[in-house]
């Protein structure tokens, strides 16, 4: 697919706008993984598994 920054796709979004929407999703996913890592560490302190 050619990437023309001003091309408007069927959604009505340009490439830049889709990138921005995507960045929100990626940030959400990153924070989700950080949270779950922290929760796992605490859960491990509470009841260590694989022991």
């Amino acid at each position: 697919m050619p990437s023309d920054p001003d091309k408007v796709f069927p959604t009505g979004l340009t490439v830049g706008q889709a990138e921005e929407l995507h960045s929100y999703l990626i940030n959400g996913t990153r924070s989700f993984f950080m949270i779950s890592a922290l929760a796992h560490i605490l859960a491990y302190i509470l009841t260590p598994w694989l022991k």
């Binding site: 924070s31 989700f32 950080m34 949270i35 929760a39 605490l42 302190i45 509470l46 009841t47």
Partner: peptide, 27 residues
């Protein structure tokens, strides 16, 4: 959206944090 994720994150770790705070289990 960021606020929602922050509140979610706090609530997600909270029960374990409270149990560790209380010294439950092996903590």
């Amino acid at each position: 959206w960021m606020g929602t994720m922050t509140q979610f994150g706090g609530l997600a770790i909270m029960p374990f944090a409270l149990l560790v705070l209380a010294g439950a289990g092996e903590s």
